[in-house]
Design a protein around this nucleic acid. Sequence first.
RNA 1: GCCCGGGUAGUGUAGUCCGGUCUAUCAUACAGGACUGUCACUCCUGUGACUCGGGUCCGAAUCCCGGCCCGGGCGCCA
Length: 416
Amino acid sequence: MDSIKGWVHEVRDIGGIKFVIVRNRNGLYQVTLPKKKVSEDIFSFVDTLSREDVIEVSGTFQEARSRDFSTELIPDDIRIINKSATPLPLDPSEKVHAELDTRLDNRFLDIRRPAIQAIFKVRHALIKHARDYLDSQGFLEIHTSKIISTASEGGTELFPVKYFEKQAYLTQSPQLYKQMAMAGGFERTYEIAWYFRAEDHNTTRHLNEATAIDIEMSFIESEEDIMQVLEQLIHHAIKGVVNDCQDELETLGVEIKVPSVPFKRISYDEAIELLQGKGMAIEWGEDLGTESERIIGEEMVTQGHEYYFIKRYPRNKVFYIQPEGRYCRGFDLDCKGLELTSGGQRCHEYDTIVERIEEFGMNPDNFEDYLKIFRYGMPTHGGFGFGLERWLMMILDLKNVRECILFPRDRHRTTP
RNA sequence: GCCCGGGUAGUGUAGUCCGGUCUAUCAUACAGGACUGUCACUCCUGUGACUCGGGUCCGAAUCCCGGCCCGGGCGCCA
C-alpha cells in the first residue's frame, strides 16, 4: 500500500475518469480515478475536494499514461486531513499572477508555490556551504546580542527599544562584538547575523531587517587576508549550490556560473578615474552613489567580472577601519553594481582608534566599553559583513530583495 | 526625508488621456451541468469589482482637491 500526503493542487474531472493532482514539498503527484477501477464512494467523494485541501491518499502506484507523470496512484482511500476555505486569496498553482504585496500578505500560501520554495532551498544551501567553508577554515560560530545601549558604530539609524527603565536599540551590526571576540582570543569567528536598520529607504534592494554572514579574524597582515576568505567563501558556497540545487535552479530558470578566484580588485582611485572617464562629475573623496556603482558594475561585467572588490577607500570611510595615509584598509565587494559586502582591517591600537573617533567628530568618552578592548592586548584583525538577501538576489537574478527573506520588513510592512 | 507613478470582482487585468447604452472587458476563481486519459483539460450556465471623503458637471471608474493604501527612483545604507 502506497500513500501520499499533501495539498490538492487541481482536480481534473473528465467524466468517467478523474485526476487529482496532489502537491507536497517533493513535487506533484497524480492520483487517477478511472470509474471502473475505484469504488463508487471514492469516485464521487472526489467531487467534494477543493483546491488546497490537505489530504492523504492511499492506494497503489502504477505506470501512468501521462505526459507529465511517470507514475500515478490508484486510490483505495482518500482522507481529508483538513479542508481549505474558498476562494483562495492567491493562486498557488500560478495560473494567475499575483503582485508581490498580495503574495507577502499571504506569504504562507505564496510559499506553497514550488518556485518560492526553491528560493529558500537555495538560501539554505548557500548558508550551509558558507558555514561549511568557514568551519573548514577554523572559524567559530558565535551569536551576539541584538540589543545594544548606544549607537556606537554610527552611520545608520537605529530602532529604539524600551528596555525596562532604560533606552536601548536594536543592533545594526555585530561589528563591535566581533571585535570583542578578537580581543577575547577566538582568533576566527563568524555569525549568521541579524541587522536592524531604521532607514527610510524604499527600494528593491533594501530591507529594514536583514541577515548577513559576518566574520572576523585575527593576526592578519592586511585586508587582503580577509578578502581572500570572502572570495573563497563565495566560490565554495556557489559551487555547493550548483551541486545541491539543480532541480531548484531549473525551477527558477537560473543558470549559475561559479565565479573563479581571485576576484578582480580595483582601487577607489581607479574607480574614480573610471567614472570621470565616463563623464561623471565626481571628485576624489566623494562616496560612490547608486549611479557610480551601476557604471562600475557595467564596466566590470564587460571585462568579465561579476564579483569585484573596491579597495583603498579614502580614510574618512569608517572610523574603525585602519587608516593608511590618505587611504584606509577598507573594501567593498560588489556584484554587478550592487554592494554586497563591506569590510576591512580594523584599527587595533588604542591610540589610533581614539584618534579616529576624534577625527570623525565623535567623543571617545562615549566609547568606553568599546575602547577598553584595545588596552589589554588586541591583535591585528579585520572582517566583513556580507548581506545574505542581496547576495541571493544577485545569484538568482531576482528583481526584489523582499523575495529573498521569508517575512520581509520594509519601510511599511510589519506583518505577517 | 525628497521626487515620480498607481489603487477596477477572491486574484490578475481592459477601460481613465478625449466624462455620455460602462447595464464595466477578458482570464482565472467560485457555484451548477456535460464529458473515460487529463496534464493551464475542454465546453455550457450562473456569481462577483470601479480605495475613501469632498468638489465640478445635466451626467464621473474617467476631471479637480484631500485622506488612506501600494509601487518605484534618489539620498542614506549591506
